[in-house]
Protein backbone atom coordinates (compact mmCIF):
# COMPACT_ATOMS: atom_id res chain seq x y z
CA UNK A 1 0.00 0.00 0.00
CA UNK A 2 1.14 3.53 -0.80
CA UNK A 3 0.17 6.25 1.66
CA UNK A 4 0.23 9.96 0.84
CA UNK A 5 -0.33 12.64 3.49
CA UNK A 6 -1.02 16.35 3.04
CA UNK A 7 -1.61 19.31 5.34
CA UNK A 8 -4.18 21.76 4.00
CA UNK A 9 -4.33 25.45 4.95
CA UNK A 10 -7.75 27.02 5.36
CA UNK A 11 -8.28 30.13 3.25
CA UNK A 12 -5.33 29.58 0.91
CA UNK A 13 -7.13 29.33 -2.42
CA UNK A 14 -3.99 29.68 -4.49
CA UNK A 15 -2.87 26.28 -3.21
CA UNK A 16 -6.27 24.62 -3.39
CA UNK A 17 -5.96 21.59 -5.66
CA UNK A 18 -2.32 20.82 -4.91
CA UNK A 19 -3.06 17.63 -2.97
CA UNK A 20 -5.50 16.27 -5.54
CA UNK A 21 -3.03 17.08 -8.33
CA UNK A 22 -0.25 15.15 -6.52
CA UNK A 23 -2.59 12.21 -5.98
CA UNK A 24 -3.45 12.28 -9.68
CA UNK A 25 0.23 12.11 -10.62
CA UNK A 26 0.79 9.16 -8.28
CA UNK A 27 -2.24 7.25 -9.56
CA UNK A 28 -1.10 7.80 -13.15
CA UNK A 29 2.30 6.36 -12.30
CA UNK A 30 0.56 3.24 -11.00
CA UNK A 31 -1.35 2.66 -14.26
CA UNK A 32 -4.74 3.10 -12.64
CA UNK A 33 -7.43 3.51 -15.27
CA UNK A 34 -7.94 7.13 -16.28
CA UNK A 35 -11.68 7.14 -15.64
CA UNK A 36 -11.11 5.94 -12.05
CA UNK A 37 -8.38 8.52 -11.60
CA UNK A 38 -10.81 11.18 -12.73
CA UNK A 39 -13.46 10.09 -10.18
CA UNK A 40 -10.93 10.03 -7.36
CA UNK A 41 -9.40 13.37 -8.26
CA UNK A 42 -12.77 15.10 -8.64
CA UNK A 43 -13.92 13.83 -5.23
CA UNK A 44 -10.65 14.69 -3.56
CA UNK A 45 -10.50 18.13 -5.16
CA UNK A 46 -13.97 18.96 -3.85
CA UNK A 47 -13.00 17.77 -0.36
CA UNK A 48 -9.77 19.75 -0.51
CA UNK A 49 -11.62 22.91 -1.55
CA UNK A 50 -14.10 22.34 1.28
CA UNK A 51 -11.25 22.58 3.78
CA UNK A 52 -9.84 25.69 2.10
CA UNK A 53 -13.23 27.37 1.85
CA UNK A 54 -14.75 26.46 5.21
CA UNK A 55 -12.16 25.25 7.73
CA UNK A 56 -9.10 26.64 9.57
CA UNK A 57 -6.87 23.75 8.64
CA UNK A 58 -7.03 20.10 7.77
CA UNK A 59 -5.26 16.95 6.64
CA UNK A 60 -5.71 14.52 3.78
CA UNK A 61 -4.50 10.97 3.86
CA UNK A 62 -4.75 8.77 0.79
CA UNK A 63 -4.12 5.04 0.98
CA UNK A 64 -3.65 3.32 -2.35
CA UNK A 65 -4.13 -0.44 -2.34
CA UNK A 66 -4.45 -2.78 -5.34
CA UNK A 67 -8.20 -3.13 -4.72
CA UNK A 68 -9.22 0.37 -3.64
CA UNK A 69 -8.20 3.92 -2.80
CA UNK A 70 -9.26 5.16 0.63
CA UNK A 71 -9.20 8.82 1.54
CA UNK A 72 -9.50 10.40 4.96
CA UNK A 73 -10.13 14.14 4.84
CA UNK A 74 -10.29 15.78 8.29
CA UNK A 75 -10.52 19.41 9.24
CA UNK A 76 -10.72 21.71 12.20
CA UNK A 77 -13.58 24.01 11.31
CA UNK A 78 -17.20 24.95 11.86
CA UNK A 79 -18.59 21.47 11.20
CA UNK A 80 -21.79 20.80 9.25
CA UNK A 81 -25.05 21.72 11.02
CA UNK A 82 -27.40 19.80 8.76
CA UNK A 83 -25.90 17.01 6.71
CA UNK A 84 -29.11 16.36 4.73
CA UNK A 85 -29.16 19.98 3.60
CA UNK A 86 -25.44 19.89 2.80
CA UNK A 87 -26.03 16.87 0.58
CA UNK A 88 -28.55 18.79 -1.55
CA UNK A 89 -27.21 20.11 -4.82
CA UNK A 90 -26.98 23.90 -4.75
CA UNK A 91 -27.15 24.26 -0.97
CA UNK A 92 -24.17 26.28 0.24
CA UNK A 93 -23.04 28.08 3.37
CA UNK A 94 -20.02 29.61 1.60
CA UNK A 95 -19.38 33.32 2.13
CA UNK A 96 -19.84 35.88 -0.64
CA UNK A 97 -16.04 36.23 -1.02
CA UNK A 98 -15.62 32.50 -1.51
CA UNK A 99 -18.38 32.44 -4.13
CA UNK A 100 -16.81 35.34 -5.92
CA UNK A 101 -13.69 33.24 -6.41
CA UNK A 102 -15.80 30.65 -8.17
CA UNK A 103 -16.11 28.22 -5.27
CA UNK A 104 -19.01 27.44 -2.93
CA UNK A 105 -21.64 26.57 -5.52
CA UNK A 106 -23.12 23.95 -3.24
CA UNK A 107 -22.05 21.01 -5.36
CA UNK A 108 -19.18 19.79 -3.13
CA UNK A 109 -20.61 16.97 -1.08
CA UNK A 110 -23.11 15.76 -3.72
CA UNK A 111 -20.31 15.68 -6.27
CA UNK A 112 -18.02 13.75 -3.94
CA UNK A 113 -20.71 11.17 -3.31
CA UNK A 114 -21.29 10.71 -7.03
CA UNK A 115 -17.65 9.97 -7.69
CA UNK A 116 -16.85 7.44 -4.95
CA UNK A 117 -18.24 4.08 -3.83
CA UNK A 118 -18.37 4.82 -0.11
CA UNK A 119 -18.68 8.07 1.82
CA UNK A 120 -18.99 8.58 5.57
CA UNK A 121 -19.32 12.00 7.21
CA UNK A 122 -18.42 12.51 10.83
CA UNK A 123 -18.98 16.08 11.97
CA UNK A 124 -19.17 18.02 15.23
CA UNK A 125 -20.52 21.55 15.01
CA UNK A 126 -17.90 24.03 16.14
CA UNK A 127 -15.09 21.44 16.05
CA UNK A 128 -14.67 20.01 12.59
CA UNK A 129 -15.55 17.45 9.97
CA UNK A 130 -14.00 14.26 8.78
CA UNK A 131 -14.85 12.60 5.55
CA UNK A 132 -14.06 8.96 4.83
CA UNK A 133 -14.13 8.06 1.15
CA UNK A 134 -13.47 4.87 -0.74
CA UNK A 135 -13.17 4.14 -4.43
CA UNK A 136 -12.96 0.54 -5.60
CA UNK A 137 -10.45 -0.12 -8.38
CA UNK A 138 -11.80 -3.38 -9.78
CA UNK A 139 -14.74 -2.00 -11.77
CA UNK A 140 -13.90 0.24 -14.70
Amino acid sequence: MVTLKFNIEGGNFSKAGYASSQVKKTLKQLNIHQSLIKNIVVALYEAEVNIVAHAYKGTIQVDIAPTDVSMLVSDEGPGIENIDLAMQEGFSTASAEVRQMGFGAGMGLPNIKKNVDEMYIDTVVGKGTSLKLKKMLNNV
Binding site: M1, V2, T26, K28, Q29, L30, N31, I32, I64, A65, P66, L137
Partner: peptide
Amino acid sequence: RPLQRFGPDIAKAITRMQRAR
Protein backbone atom coordinates in the same frame (compact mmCIF):
# COMPACT_ATOMS: atom_id res chain seq x y z
CA ARG B 1 1.27 4.95 -25.11
CA PRO B 2 1.28 5.56 -21.36
CA LEU B 3 4.59 5.37 -19.58
CA GLN B 4 4.56 2.51 -17.09
CA ARG B 5 7.03 3.69 -14.47
CA PHE B 6 6.65 0.66 -12.23
CA GLY B 7 5.51 -1.91 -14.78
CA PRO B 8 2.04 -2.77 -16.09
CA ASP B 9 0.66 -4.68 -13.09
CA ILE B 10 -1.07 -2.38 -10.56
CA ALA B 11 -0.47 -4.52 -7.46
CA LYS B 12 3.23 -4.88 -8.31
CA ALA B 13 3.45 -1.19 -9.16
CA ILE B 14 2.05 -0.27 -5.74
CA THR B 15 4.58 -2.52 -4.00
CA ARG B 16 7.40 -1.03 -6.04
CA MET B 17 6.31 2.54 -5.47
CA GLN B 18 6.10 1.85 -1.73
CA ARG B 19 9.59 0.37 -1.88
CA ALA B 20 10.87 3.48 -3.68
CA ARG B 21 9.28 5.70 -1.05
